[in-house]
Every structure is written in structure tokens, then in C-alpha cells.
Design a binder for these strands. Structure first.
Length: 423
DNA sequence: TCTGGGGTCCTAGGACCC
DNA sequence: TCTGGGGTCCTAGGACCC
């Protein structure tokens, strides 16, 4: 049976989440900023029309934002994650097989839905998601994931499709591909765009018709698959069960640069705690940790970047032990006299916790530590993050990120729930 | 004043083994 | 005179994604 994929993409997702709880934003330019209120990471259509670019530093838009009264929000991840779950739950009603691809995208398998008019079906999905969650979506349909993605790009570009387009056996298939820039094809980024342009390939259609062997030589098997997919052969399958992460990291820029080793240790201890939680969430342990610190690369000052790593004798997810290792490494890589702007930890060599190879000559407190972490995680899930934390993570957190325009966590905190006044 | 964060996959090259 | 060959594992770096 021929595969059919639908790619569901939430429009301007973070901005749309804010709009659900603040309908006054309708028709206004709205942006959501990254951590530390650094870059623009979501824009309403009105904001896009003003020429505000994705990923661009917000402070450079200071005048523009003011001039056009753009509404600005700090990122409110708990809200977006919860809204995402609502959208995904709704989508799950429409197919037995789906893959949650990112916070605002999902692939749905519509293979075998032959008795249905797929356009009508997609429109009813779109209507239901809007009605149940308030989030507007776009749906692209095609015989491969890459083509479904391409269809959704086209559906967004041209209002005549009303946010739903099926390009399977489309009579104007080639013309449609020709209207898509090659860098808008899933899998083609900045570098490959440059390379392809140098060889006179500018559109998705031209990429589709490029010689396969040449593509394989110059763009590895990944590019090879992309071209096959553009030609209608499905190479990228639906991943319904999310795989355990092979690497987990927690890195942050600081709201304010810090100087002392003590503060760096606090920050890193917080990052380790967070990363360890993620590790335990997926029932894994790490066997390799890396810690890094760096000054502000955008500043015209003396730069310092350094990192160190440890391979653990026995893999673990025990927060205190991991913090200890990082502290020892920080003692080595820290250099006084610099203003540090960012630090982070990376866990690698992650394995399932039931596959730990115990050390012949080391006594292990494995069970005791596991129980302790389980209890801590339970309390923090129930009462909110950092209800219990390691003292080494600090209380003051001077390095904490800036979030000056934060909206409420409308859906995950009772005391921040929306109040509707009827007069 | 001010520039995000967290992932995946592939390849080349070196170390090491028999 | 002549100095192998095949394989695995690991790591760093580069590409991509959202």
C-alpha cells in the first residue's frame, strides 16, 4: 500500500499560545523572545509583515518594536508545552499512527484512508484543533515526509489553499515544486543551499531532478534520501515511539555575567540537576559528562572558553555525584579575571539504567541513591520544580535568566489561571 | 544593558586488534 | 629486494532540524 503522510504544523505556535489567552492580541504584531529575552523566536503574521526576522536579536529591533507597538513576550515554556500536549491529544483522535516531531509539529499517517476525501478530512482536523485548543494549524499531505513538509510550506505561502494542501498526484506537481526555494526543502540548510546554488540548483524541482550519485557524493546519504523522497519514494519512516535520548544537555546564558568560581559552580550545579532529571525521566544513566564555561563572544573583550570531561567508572543519574565531578572539573578550568556569560553540561554515552555494568572493586550505593532521587523527583513533580534541590545549586541565583515580559502559566498553575470578569 | 537552547545523523581519521 | 590487510571502535567536526 502506498504511504500517505500528513504534516501538521502549528502556525506561529508560541504567539498563537499567547493569543488563546489574550484575544486582544488578534490583528496586532506580537513576538515571543528566547531565553534571557535574547532573540525573536516566534512572530505573528503582522510581525512578519514588519520584516522582523526569526532568530534576530531583540535589542536590535528596539526602535521598530516601539514604533509599531509590537507586543513582546518572554518565552513561557510551561504554557507552550501544555498547549502542545492538547494539540497532540486532539490529533491522536484522527489517526492510529502518528509521530510527535517537535513541540509544534506532528506527522500523521493517513495510509489506507482511501475511502475519505483527504482534503475534507484534513479540514475537519484543522477545525477540530482550532475549536478544542484555539491553535491554528496548517496541514500538508504527500506520499513521503519530505513531500508532506513541502506541501505545508506551499499551503502557508498561498492563501488559496486555506492551510490545507495535498500534493499526492497533484496535476501541477512539478510547477508547485518549482515554486519552492531549494533551501525550504526539509534537509537543505544554509551550507547545502550555497553548494546547490553554485551548481545552478535553486528550486525543489531542480533538486528533485539532480543526479542521485552526485547528490550522494556531495550531500551524503542524507541528501540522497531527500532527493528520493522528493521523487515520491518514502525513505524516512514514521517514528511513533520516541527513542531514548543519546545525549542530554543543559546550557544557559546568564542574565548577568558572573565572575566568581562559587557562582559558576552554583549555576553548573543547577544545570546538572536539570539534566539529571531528564536522564532519570527516561530511565537512563550517563557514562560521560562534559562541562564548559565561556565569556560573552559578542563582546569586544578578552575571551575565554574552556571545557573538561570525565568518563565515569560506573554510569549514574545521581545528581550529587554528577555535581561533584563537575565541581572538580570547574576547579581546573576556571580562570579568575573573566566575566562569564554562559556555561553548560553535556551528558553522553547514555544507557538504560538496568544495563549498568557494576564495578568489580567498588562498593555502590546504587539502590539507596535511586530511592532518594525517586523521592526528590516525585516531590518536584508534584509541588513544582526545585521544591527540593541540592544546596550547591544556590538560593540567590544571580545568574538567572531574564524574563521581563512573562505571561501567566494559565494552564499549569492554579494561581495563574485566567480570570474572566462578567459585569 | 541586550545576541537561545537542545537535539540528530554522517563521515573521516586515528588507535587498536589480530 | 621485500615492510599486510581487514576490521572495529571512538572522537571530533560538520551538516541538519525545531
Amino acid at each position: 500500500m502506498k504511504d500517505i503522510f500528513a504534516l501538521v504544523d502549528c502556525n506561529n505556535f508560541y504567539v498563537s499560545c499567547e493569543k488563546v489567552f489574550n484575544p486582544k492580541l488578534d490583528g496586532k504584531p506580537v513576538v515571543v523572545l528566547s531565553n534571557n529575552d535574547g532573540c525573536v523566536i516566534a512572530r505573528s503574521n503582522e510581525a512578519k509583515a514588519l520584516g522582523i526576522k526569526m532568530g534576530f536579536p531583540a535589542f536590535k529591533y528596539k526602535d521598530l518594536l516601539k514604533k509599531h507597538s509590537v507586543v513582546v513576550y518572554s518565552t513561557n515554556y510551561p504554557l507552550y508545552a501544555d498547549m502542545s500536549q492538547r494539540v497532540m491529544n486532539t490529533l491522536a483522535q484522527f489517526t492510529p499512527n502518528m509521530e510527535i516531531y517537535s513541540i509544534d509539529e506532528a506527522f500523521l499517517s493517513l495510509t489506507g484512508f482511501t475511502s475519505k476525501n483527504l482534503i475534507d478530512y484534513a479540514k475537519s482536523i484543522k477545525g477540530t484543533v482550532k475549536k478544542w485548543t484555539g491553535i491554528p494549524i496548517t496541514i500538508g499531505i504527500g506520499p513521503t515526509k519530505t513531500l508532506a513538509k513541502t506541501a505545508s510550506k506551499l499551503a502557508k505561502k498561498d492563501p488559496q489553499y486555506d492551510s490545507v494542501l495535498d500534493i499526492t498526484n497533484h496535476p501541477n506537481f512539478d510547477n508547485l515544486l518549482d515554486s519552492i526555494d531549494v533551501e525550504d526543502v526539509w534537509g537543505v540548510g544554509r551550507q547545502y543551499k550555497k553548494f546547490l546554488n553554485r551548481h545552478d540548483i535553486y528550486t525543489a524541482l531542480q533538486l528533485k531532478n539532480a543526479p542521485l550519485e552526485w547528490i550522494k557524493t556531495n550531500m551524503t546519504v542524507v541528501g540522497f534520501r531527500t532527493v528520493k523522497e522528493l521523487r515520491g519514494t518514502s525513505c524516512i519512516t514514521l517514528e511513533e515511539i520516541p527513542a531514548a535520548k543519546k545525549g542530554i544537555m543543559c546550557t544557559r546564558s546568564f542574565g548577568k555575567a558572573i565572575e566568581s568560581l562559587e557562582e559558576l559552580k552554583e549555576a553548573v550545579a543547577s544545570f546538572v540537576s536539570r539534566a539529571s532529571e531528564k536522564l532519570r525521566d527516561q530511565h537512563s544513566v550517563t557514562s560521560f559528562i562534559q562541562v564548559f564555561i565561556m565569556t560573552n563572544p559578542f563582546k569586544d573583550e578578552h575571551q575565554y572558553v574552556n571545557s573538561a570531561s570525565v568518563r565515569l567508572p560506573i554510569p549514574t543519574s545521581y545528581t550529587s555525584e554528577l555535581i561533584n565531578h563537575c565541581n572538580q572539573k570547574l576547579d581546573i578550568i576556571y580562570k579568575p579575571g573573566y566575566l562569564y556569560k554562559k556555561a553548560g553540561v553535556i551528558f553522553d554515552g547514555i544507557i538504560p539504567e538496568d544495563k549498568i555494568q557494576l564495578h568489580l572493586f567498588r562498593k555502590s550505593d546504587l539502590d539507596r541513591n535511586r530511592k532518594l532521587m525517586k523521592t526528590v523527583d516525585y516531590i518536584n513533580t508534584k509541588w513544582g520544580r526545585n521544591t527540593i534541590q541540592c544546596a550547591s545549586s544556590g538560593i540567590q541565583k544571580k545568574w538567572k535568566m531574564r524574563q521581563s515580559k512573562l505571561s501567566s502559566r494559565f494552564t499549569t498553575r492554579w494561581n495563574e489561571i485566567l480570570v474572566v470578569k462578567v459585569s
